[in-house]
């Protein structure tokens, strides 16, 4: 499904601030897998997603999706295959466009755009049904501007948009980090529902170790641009937050400088 082979990515090359974000990163995912990714700040989690989505092009290595080499494909070209939800709830939607217009943009993610109508009556019914399952009452506010929605509602809409056309790979970049605990929980429930129903292959970055353990089929830990720990199946189910902390302490030589990593 997804193959990241020996990918290298650095920032500020040739300056004193040079930082190796990804170092010889190798990562393989099978169809239908749901991987949660944890790691401290600067571990390379977001950079990994960004080389998959094409925001950054790596200096070395290759990325394959379903056997296709996408390493140098433009961001908008590979968007066809990828569903994305950003950390910032403002990033995933166009605030001054209506809810249904946003959904219509998402509906055309995999299609070539022409001069036919940007949204059709038939689609609207489909969007209404899709919105109804969010259980946020948005199906009655389809012509409202997205900017009027709360962060949680926007994130729920973004999630819906990412999966409206089934993506080959769903990428969630700490998509609940900016939400209050209750809303975060709701969005996570929705995430799980959508992934299970549609059997979506998913990568979810999170800072919440408990979520990382209880969700998904595999958990990986990143450190200094590499994957340092990967666990699946029974072993993952029995994992405890303490085990992860222990593991993290091992790979980082006992430095526990990063307090965000400690968030439970």
């Amino acid at each position: 499904m997804l193959d990241i082979v020996q990918v290298e990515k650095s920032f500020n090359i040739g300056t004193v601030n040079e930082k190796k974000a990804l170092q010889n990163l190798n990562f393989h995912m099978n169809d239908g897998e749901f991987v949660t990714v944890i790691g401290g700040n600067g571990a390379g989690k977001s950079t990994m997603l960004n080389v998959i989505t094409g925001v950054y092009k790596p200096e070395g290595g290759k990325i394959f999706l379903d056997g296709q080499d996408i390493t140098y494909l433009e961001e908008w070209q590979r968007a066809k295959y990828l569903g994305r939800v950003f950390q910032d709830p403002m990033m995933g939607t166009a605030a001054n466009m209506q809810i249904e217009e946003n959904l219509a943009l998402a509906y055309r993610r995999t299609k070539k755009r022409g001069l036919s109508w940007g949204i059709s009556e038939k689609e609207k019914e489909y969007y209404r049904q899709s919105l109804a399952r969010l259980d946020l009452g948005l199906e009655d506010r389809m012509t409202a501007k997205v900017g009027l929605l709360s962060g949680g509602q926007r994130q729920a809409v973004t999630l819906l948009m990412a999966t409206l056309q089934k993506p080959k790979l769903l990428l969630l970049d700490e998509h609940t980090a900016a939400l209050d605990p209750k809303t975060a929980e709701k969005v996570l429930d929705l995430t799980r529902e959508l992934i299970e129903e549609e059997h979506l292959t998913t990568i979810m970055i999170t800072h919440n170790m408990r979520d990382a353990i209880r969700m998904g089929t595999r958990l990986v830990m990143m450190h200094q641009g590499r994957i340092v720990y990967s666990v699946a199946g029974e072993e993952k189910k029995n994992l405890k937050v303490e085990d992860l902390l222990q593991k993290f302490s091992e790979v980082s030589n006992g430095e526990f400088a990063n307090d965000r990593m400690l968030l439970l």
């Binding site: 989505t53 908008w76 990033m91 939607t93 166009a94 605030a95 943009l105």
Partner: peptide, 15 residues
């Protein structure tokens, strides 16, 4: 319109 409003979102939508 989406490009003018939110270029990141637009690219993610394959625009």
């Amino acid at each position: 319109r989406a490009t003018g409003q939110n270029i990141h979102m637009a690219r993610a939508m394959g625009i």
